[in-house]
Design a protein around this nucleic acid. Structure first.
Lengths: 203, 203
DNA sequence: CTTGCACTATACTAACCAGTCAACTAAGCT
DNA sequence: AGCTTAGTTGACTGGTTAGTATAGTGCAAG
């Protein structure tokens, strides 16, 4: 029978939070440990390096979001509505974080991926992998929309990438401006990009 | 009569290069000094902190790019052609860097801005300021295009922001994938976003 | 009761960090 | 020549870093 401890989980949660609000480079293992209420020895018993924990925390954070993503991108929902809900959710997440910390934190995957992609191959690969997963939702949605005729595209995979990059770029810009108002044009830009009218505006 | 030294300039150049290829957090003052062939004392004689140098290096890097930007966005050039040249240039810059270092480095302003915006207000402000300058070129171009009737927009400033964020997001994604092929859809996406046909495709 | 193992606690290392300082060099001015 | 001052030098400080070593704890099965 295994004895389980919540040390790993505490470290995962703390790592995501601290790194998201600050940056990988500015957060130390000691910071993570003391915030998580875990001793250094336990840290290195649970993970073999700081980079390892970060990669695991990435994966864990994604898993926590996955249920919601599956729901937003459910085939039961009309494709353009999925897209709209996704935009709303992205903006809402940023606003929640903003209210909580008084600063716009951007997308954790993109921020950390961008910071470390040239430094740490393990983290770059993980960031890449997670971005592919997000793009899958979008590609599928755009394919469905094309099939029902609400938008036209020859290449839903490429278009999904464009939408994804636009969203990521906008969050980054909002972070750089530290201004939630920047996010206002997320939906408008996405729909402009896919060349469709928003569901709401058709009513 | 002033005695001038190239210490400041050497530090500016070295800082941009090292931080661009790596990250602010992973590059130390000692790294910058030894690569620039400058002593630590001289560093702190020239700049009062690491963060100060970074901000100055930002500004300096922009100034070096400015001439080319003025040329690309010259009123003498038809607006949509400016947009195309801009895209070409962005991609070319990334490819040059990629060939030189074997890794995709992304946009230095966005990368460092994204890394430090929640940490260092001075750098966040500088990154913000420089992004505004880029967007000015784009807004002006889109306004001109609307005036000559090659595209439609109610709000060229907002559209410029969307274009800018899309480009930044795409560079970030290319960095995360460490794959120059990602950049291929820059132009297509930009023209999709502004709702115009590329100049080339009209011929 | 004891052996083994999952986990914790903390002191420690060796390298590294940003930043300081006082001594030094040399160029320009009178 | 002699003074002033911009600029240089590299050793130094005090604190922090990721990671380690080792002793210890508490549970569970034999």
């Amino acid at each position: 029978m295994k004895r389980e401890s919540d040390t790993r989980q505490k470290l995962l949660n703390t790592a995501v939070t601290l790194i998201w609000e600050n940056s990988y480079g500015s957060i130390s293992v000691d910071d993570i440990c003391s915030r998580a209420g875990v001793n250094k020895g336990s840290f290195y018993y649970a993970y073999k390096s700081k980079s390892d924990l970060a990669a695991a925390a990435f994966e864990d954070h994604w898993n926590k979001k996955r249920g919601l993503m599956d729901e937003i991108f459910s085939s039961q929902v009309p494709p353009l509505e999925r897209l709209e809900k996704y935009c709303d959710r992205v903006v809402q997440d940023q606003l929640d974080k903003y209210e909580k910390f008084g600063k716009l934190c951007g997308c954790p995957f993109s921020s950390i991926g961008s910071e470390l992609s040239t430094q740490d191959e393990q983290i770059r690969k993980k960031a890449h992998e997670l971005s592919e997963r997000s793009m899958k939702y979008l590609a599928c949605t755009l394919r469905d929309a094309a099939a029902e005729g609400t938008l036209e595209t020859e290449d839903p995979v490429e278009l999904a990438r464009q939408v994804f990059c636009y969203a990521g770029g906008l969050m980054m810009q909002a972070k750089i401006e530290n201004n939630p108002a920047v996010l206002k044009c997320l939906k408008k830009g996405v729909f402009r990009l896919v060349g469709a009218n928003q569901v709401g505006s058709l009513v």
